[in-house]
Design a protein around this nucleic acid. Structure first.
Lengths: 218, 218
DNA sequence: TGACTGACCGACCGTACGGTCAGCAATATT
DNA sequence: AATATTGCTGACCGTACGGTCGGTCAGTCA
């Protein structure tokens, strides 16, 4: 599994290639790399197995082409979300709502990238991380740093930790949503807007300046 | 992949069986069910492949035995953590710190269960969910509900959402820690105690009663 | 018309997979 | 001493895997 993410694909695509990519994204996002065979992808795409090898040099090449494309697509979309205007807290509220909505709207690709990022396989995650983290997380950290220098964010908090907490709350909700739906008390599991509103409320209420820290902080 | 989690193992274990289980937990937690072959497990455990089939009827049976044992072990440990004494906020602070520490201390088993729970495969996750969620999350929700009835938790918040947010922040940090270590600004990535302290500080500061909600809530 | 190209397929290859089985050595039981 | 029982192995089976190969067919352009 070598991370050969350095190529660039010409946008010209035949109908067969599109069908292959669609099927592969769907299957890989659900069952993971090892859980999907080339035969199964070919069958789901309605093409022959040899046809996949006509368009992609190997299973790895197909997988990484999808992974790379998904990561760059998601990164671009998220970066647009972070460019909102308005007050510090209004921007963060707007970002969170749009972020959660965005995760569910592109659930297959998000699952694909998240699975790779959290796989704990060290080598594989490196390339994905460098592409997404540098783009999105650093942007988010910068927003919190600016808010802190403007005196809006509590001075005793780590801006990077605040950014992680906010984005992590979104991502965890996305990951855990199928499970949360099985908990009767968790009515918010079916209402992402309700979750993102209340979650941002809690976090901002706890992070914004002008309120005393609740406990020992160090 | 049928969820045959209804058996019960006698605790009598030979040295070979222990070696098999150790190797299988490690490999499954890193590479997932489909990413590990019986040959590889046998090699890592220093036994023959046929020996695995002497102790376990199939690859699935081995996997689910590990999954079931891990889930029940983790559930028991977490339930003990939730039994802390002291004030409402002190209990939550204590729980979070112990929870994060507990996740890293049993990282292989936690990864194994999390992978299954978040796999999005519907059927497989059902059994894991029923075992862990009913035990742990409901306990956590009950704590927040009690705190709310005692007037300690903001009345406008959903106790289940608060519980999810707190435990989710722990779990996300555990999942993302290898990635966070690659972000220079995220110094807290290497200091779980620092993270859990500051995270709990923010959440409690945002959730406890006596502070006005930051924005529109409904 | 004919040379060339890209999309596509059926048949095939070597390998690794999950799983089986007869049997060996050691211990416990009678 | 004879007899299960237990822990374990090497050799093997059928199948599915990733990947290759020769070839078909429609379109294009000189």
């Amino acid at each position: 599994m070598s991370p050969n993410l350095a190529t660039k694909q010409p946008p010209a695509q035949s109908a067969g290639e599109i069908a292959i990519l669609d099927a592969a994204v769907r299957l890989f996002s659900i069952h993971g790399y090892d859980g999907v065979s080339m035969r199964r992808i070919a069958e789901a795409a309605g093409v022959s197995k040899a046809n996949i090898y006509h368009h992609f040099s190997s299973k790895e090449a197909l997988y990484f082409a999808i992974l790379r494309h998904s990561a760059s697509e998601l990164t671009a979309l998220i970066e647009n979300l972070a460019e909102g205007q308005g007050s510090f807290s209004a921007r963060l509220q707007g970002f969170t709502a749009a972020h959660v909505e965005h995760l569910f709207a592109h659930s297959a690709r998000v699952r694909l990238v998240l699975r790779e990022a959290f796989s704990g396989d060290e080598e594989k995650s490196r390339a994905v991380v460098e592409q997404m983290l540098n783009g999105v997380v650093n942007r988010m950290i910068a927003i919190f740093e600016a808010g802190q220098q403007a005196g809006l964010l509590r001075a005793d908090l780590d801006p990077a930790l605040c950014a992680t907490l906010l984005m992590g709350a979104d991502l965890f909700y996305f990951q855990a949503q199928p499970l949360l739906r099985q908990i009767p008390e968790a009515g918010f599991a079916c209402h992402p807007g309700q979750y993102s509103r209340q979650m941002t409320d809690i976090l901002l209420n706890g992070m914004l300046a002008g309120r005393a820290p609740a406990g020992a902080t160090t």
